[in-house]
Design a protein around this nucleic acid. Structure first.
Length: 880
DNA sequence: TAATGGTAGGGGAGGAAAAAGTCTACATAT
DNA sequence: TAGTGATATGTAGACTTATTCCTCCCCTAC
């Protein structure tokens, strides 16, 4: 029997661990396989372990073994392998040994991962049960339960069919104007959506009030019991919903407890659903099932201004939903049949959308691929970061080669590392961009630069030469770190990376060949996962909480990168005479004096060929794309008219990096206008037309013709308001909302939307909630939007093009860009007279000199005549 | 039970420090 | 020629008002 692994855990039977592997067969059957006789173990050195542990009843065996330690090129050492009975006792024995001054290895590996690592099993990987027999048990709720004696991992690309349920709960706050509290306020509605259908139904709505399309219950308790029964009966592999980790699940757990029902709806009858908030993150575990919170995934995978279900569905699915405000909830719940129907359909809709997000956006694919590559269980892949994946993978590889894996650093060690980190790890090198609008720039990239460097220079903790020892053929990186050559010992990480890069190309090939769309998606996700994993190793080396942390090694990687890009630039300029106009970390952009795209590409390829001759190991520079026009603004900010090879021809598009159009903390109006201006400039090279377009926007803004939504600025609240050192616009608004309506106050990690309204004083004090502005008819500060939002980015673009304000107007340098545009081309809207209150002095028309008072001559010292000046512009008249 | 990959870099907003005006009182020159 | 008032100009110090610089914060490029 073959099955795909969904979850693994263990239980104690007579104080001995029994591993449970939860899986799904190709036929869609849920299976739980029990495995006995596997015990936890770890290593220690630096003391007489048999003697120290002779009275410890947990210990099953202590054996002398030879193992290598990871850090530094060293010979194997003798140490003790300690096997115990109960996995939960590991920390106790570990700390006891540490207190006696011993060094302990691998005593902080979760038992399920110890097991999976030893048997080479992965989350969502396949396992073949070779010798097994059916058993009956009350403890596990699966279609099939077996005792397995022999098994092995199998390589298989297909996915078993999954059962998914999406759910959403509604509740009403017991006190008006507050947030519902699980301690106090009951659940009134639960909607569920099934995929595939459950007993011929796509969805159900449970409630304590009867109505059309509703399954009614006598009490909350009965409804909750109904919910649990349905889950258990449907037996889903995946439980999803929008923000279920943050809201629905913790809420429902608390309500279940309030109603004296144990929150047990996993595939194990004993273990309760566990949900805990850690810092600002939530994590939930349900035995045998996977929690897929579409909110959390969308937030990670898509860059959006706001993550309300409303906005997410609109932007990602193109589906608009009817929304019900929190404050309306109670009215609908207690209202007429019609109103209640609206609430019911609203709740059902939320579940439908959560399911649609998962299925249509294929949110799980990437994470399944990451699980299969790294070995972590899907639920952990979803709820944890890069570290757990990297370390899970490394543990296996180091073990295979006879190494013991280091422990997690303790708090003190982390603090020590953090202290040094800021100054001690240098990153990539960014070339100073050459100013101006360039034509025909070829972009060349180093293929997987950091992984390639690690492979080329055999960079690994296991090959690092410690102290002053010298080894024949040693490799020295620019940072000064030295590594033994491959011939002496091949590093584990270089070996892993070589394999990953090979596997990635294999997956890419399969992807290209495959016709079946489902399989194609699997291969795409697989190659993506290999790329992500390969790139994560470098970051891990410099991460202060990593088991394998060494700044010498991390710096060895980055210093080699810096040297490589600099040498590349020099060679291109020296040998070919081309100018490298920009480059960042692993890329160079070279200006080619050729108009023909094919020619530019050809030269680009020739450059790569020449550079590659000089590069060591697997380092490789490759042609990436051509910029027909390239306008760098600063480092990390540029605009380009891009041409990428596609099939026989070229695919063109405008590429914008780092500028306001791609940033979420600028309003839509800025993004739209700047995008348009760039388009006009790059493709038509018509500054006048761009200026005219912009002038029109500003006029509309002053006249109040711009939709408020286009003026909304959004920013993330990264900590609670009182922890902010200074005054921040978005935080000031949060404080206002907290005072006005605590129920709707945002939390950590939420994106805050605001507009700037008219008034005096700090911008921060003039932030307002867009809907509040609408409801109360407040006026937005058009001056702010012109001077602080629209103009600065435009000015930067013109600046990069070397178009000065005076050029736009052909006038004095005191002129701001506002006047330059308003008065410059076509005129018509120029300021004719200014109120005396706004007058700031006198301006010479000829030389642009500014006077606070009129000079006695009545004219400028240069002889030019004077006009009145103000911040908004100059005029011939002032009015009282 | 339990979590959190890296550095480089731009740019807005606020706030402190330094610099530039302004005002006042008084001195000096015409 | 000395004394006088009106006016202009200069100067130092107190006070006020822009500038400049730095930090915090957010977000992006790689």
């Amino acid at each position: 029997m073959e099955m795909q692994i969904i979850d693994v855990d263990y239980v104690l039977v007579n104080d001995s661990p029994v591993i449970r592997i939860f899986g799904k067969t190709m036929a869609g059957e849920s299976v739980c396989a029990f495995y006995e006789g596997y015990y936890p173990y770890f290593y220690a050195e630096g003391g007489d372990v048999p003697e120290i542990l002779k009275d410890e009843p947990q210990v099953r065996s202590v054996k002398k073994v030879k193992r290598k330690v990871v850090m530094g090129y060293q010979e194997p050492r003798e140490m003790w392998k300690i096997t115990i009975t109960n996995p939960a006792k590991t920390p106790e024995i570990r700390e006891f040994l540490r207190s006696r001054g011993l060094t302990v290895y691998e005593a902080d590996i979760l038992f399920k991962y110890r097991f999976m690592s030893d048997f080479d099993l992965s989350g969502f990987g396949w396992i073949e049960l070779k010798d097994f027999s059916g058993i009956s048990t009350e403890t596990v709720r699966c279609q099939k339960t077996v005792q397995v004696r022999e098994f092995s991992p199998v390589k298989k690309d297909d996915h078993a069919p999954l059962r998914k349920v999406a759910f959403d709960i509604e509740c009403v706050a017991g006190v008006a104007g507050t947030v519902p509290e699980a301690r106090r306020d009951p659940v009134i509605l639960i909607s569920m959506v099934f995929s595939p259908e459950y007993k011929g139904k796509k969805k159900v709505v449970f409630s304590t009030r009867s109505g059309k399309g509703v399954t009614a219950f006598e009490s909350e308790k009965e409804m909750l019991q109904g919910f649990i029964d349905t889950i258990i009966d449907y037996d889903p592999d995946v439980i999803t919903g929008y923000n279920v980790n943050g809201f629905d699940i913790p809420y429902i757990i608390e309500r279940l407890e309030k109603n004296d029902i144990r929150p047990v709806f996993g595939r194990c009858g004993q273990k309760a659903v566990y949900s805990k908030k850690l810092m600002s993150r939530h994590s939930t575990s349900i035995v045998g099932r996977v929690i897929v919170d579409s909110f959390e995934i969308v937030k990670k995978d898509f860059s959006l201004t706001r993550y309300t279900l409303d906005n997410v569905c609109d932007k990602l699915l193109g589906e608009r939903k009817v929304s019900v405000k929190h404050s309306e909830m109670e009215k609908l719940w207690k209202g007429s049949e019609k109103e209640y129907e609206r609430l019911v359909s609203y709740s059902a809709q939320d579940s439908v959308l959560a399911m649609n997000l998962v299925e249509k956006l294929m949110l799980m694919d990437k994470y399944i691929a990451l699980s299969r590559v790294s070995g972590t269980l899907l639920n952990d892949t979803l709820s944890s970061g890069e570290t757990s994946r990297i370390e899970n993978y490394l543990l296996r590889e180091f073990n295979k080669e006879g190494f013991v894996f280091p422990s997690k650093p303790d708090q003190q060690e982390v603090a020590r590392r953090d202290e040094l980190r800021r100054t001690e790890l240098k990153g990539g090198f960014v070339l100073e961009p050459e100013k101006g609008l360039h034509s025909n720039v070829v972009v060349l990239d180093f293929k997987s630069m950091y992984p390639s460097i690690i492979r080329t220079y055999n960079i690994c903790p296991t090959t690092l030469i410690l102290g002053n020892e010298h080894i024949e053929g040693e490799i020295e990186t620019p940072s000064g770190a030295r590594f033994v050559p491959k011939s002496v010992r091949e590093g584990i990480i270089p070996k892993i990376l070589e394999r990953m890069m090979k596997k990635r190309s294999a997956a890419k090939k399969k992807y290209a060949k495959e016709k079946d769309t489902a399989r194609k998606a699997v291969y795409y996700a697989e190659q993506w996962a290999f790329k992500i994993m390969a790139n994560a190793f470098y970051g891990h080396l410099g991460y202060s909480r990593a088991r394998i942390y060494d700044l010498n090694i991390a710096n060895a990687v980055t210093s080699s990168g810096r040297e490589t890009i600099q040498k590349t630039k020099e060679l291109i300029e020296r040998e070919f005479g081309y100018s490298v106009v920009y480059g960042d970390t692993d890329s160079v952009m070279v200006k080619i004096p050729e108009e023909d795209m094919e020619k530019v590409k050809e030269i680009g390829n020739a450059l790569c060929k020449r550079i590659n001759e000089t590069l060591p190991g697997v380092m490789e520079l490759e042609f990436e794309k051509v910029f027909k026009r390239f306008l760098p603004l600063t480092k990390k900010r540029y605009v380009a008219w891009k041409f990428e090879p596609e099939g026989e021809g070229w695919k063109e598009s405008i590429e914008m990096k780092g500028i306001e159009t791609v940033r979420r903390d600028w309003c839509e109006l800025v993004g739209d206008s700047i995008r348009e201006v760039i388009e006009i400039i790059l493709k038509k090279n018509d500054v006048k037309a761009a200026t005219k377009y912009f002038k029109n926007i500003m006029n509309k803004l002053v006249r109040g013709e711009i939709d408020l939504q286009k003026l909304v600025i959004t920013k993330t609240m990264t900590k609670i308001p009182k922890n902010y050192a200074g005054t921040q616009p978005h935080i000031e608004l949060v404080k206002k909302i907290q005072a006005r309506n605590p129920a709707e106050a945002p939390g950590i990690g939420d994106r805050i939307s605001y507009v700037i309204v008219k008034g005096t004083g700090l911008v921060s004090k003039r932030t307002e909630d867009p809907s509040y502005v609408m409801e109360n008819g407040l006026q937005v500060d058009s001056k702010y939007y012109i001077e602080n939002q629209l103009l600065p980015p435009l000015e930067r673009i013109f600046g990069a093009l070397n178009i000065s304000k005076s050029e736009l107007l052909g006038n004095g340098k005191q002129m701001g860009i506002f006047e330059a545009i308003m008065n410059g081309n076509g005129g018509g809207t120029g300021v004719k007279e200014i109120p005396i209150s706004e007058m700031t002095g006198f301006l010479c028309k000829k030389c642009g000199a500014h006077y606070k008072r009129p000079p006695l001559l009545g004219a400028c010292s240069c002889g030019g005549s004077l006009v009145f000046s103000s911040k908004k512009g100059a005029a011939d008249f002032v009015i009282a």
